[in-house]
Amino acid sequence: MINLLLRDLKLSVRAGGGALIGVLFFLTVVAVIPFGVGPDLNLLSRIGPAILWIGALLSALLGLDRLFQTDREDGSLDLMLMQEHPLALTVLVKCLAHWIATGLPLVIASPLLGLFMNMNEVAIGAVMLTLLAGTPAITFIGAVGAAVAVALPRGGLLVSILVLPLAIPVLIFGVSASYAAVEEPAPFMPPFLILVALTMFFAVLGPVGAALALKNAGD
């Protein structure tokens, strides 16, 4: 299984892997906001955490459709379905590799983009921490959508639409935890712990659901 993780990571950084597409899209979305909103620094710092979270959510959705599709196209998925080890475990490892390749760069890029939005250091730290805890959930939810749409040639947008409603709670609690860190009376821990719970919940449910969908996707 560790070899599957390494293989997927290698594939994501080699030609056509697209590991950096998500982070470039994130950069683009967040960088144009100050131009659109105008040079109101107070407004920017107030909407900053929400903009970063929305940008990260959209970027995380961007590459999801390729999660199983490349393996299906070259026949690898067939062989993965035939093996003795449970398919849900294979899916979990593929999700982890996908998150390391596309989710983790978003977390790492977020402080830089926080500066664009005139956020103070506490807010930047809070957004980084909530993204770290929340983006895996988006990958796990997305795995189900990617598995359902695996046989469709242009499933990219469909996956995003299928997945977005389920990812909304992650966005809500991620943003509210980030705001709670900077706005005094609101407590930080309750929304943050719910965010962590969401991630753990979908880490179990996502791979099982995706495995079920892949098993029944036989052409």
């Binding site: 080699r14 070259d74 026949g75 067939d78």
Partner: peptide, 28 residues
């Protein structure tokens, strides 16, 4: 689980070297 399946598609990644492909499948 007792079967090897060699289909029309080769189940090998064009971006990886042959050795990487084979050793991945060996361990998997």
């Amino acid at each position: 689980e007792a079967c090897h399946y060699l289909g029309h598609r080769n189940a090998m990644k064009a971006e990886l070297t042959v050795a990487e492909n084979l050793s991945f499948w060996k361990s998997f």
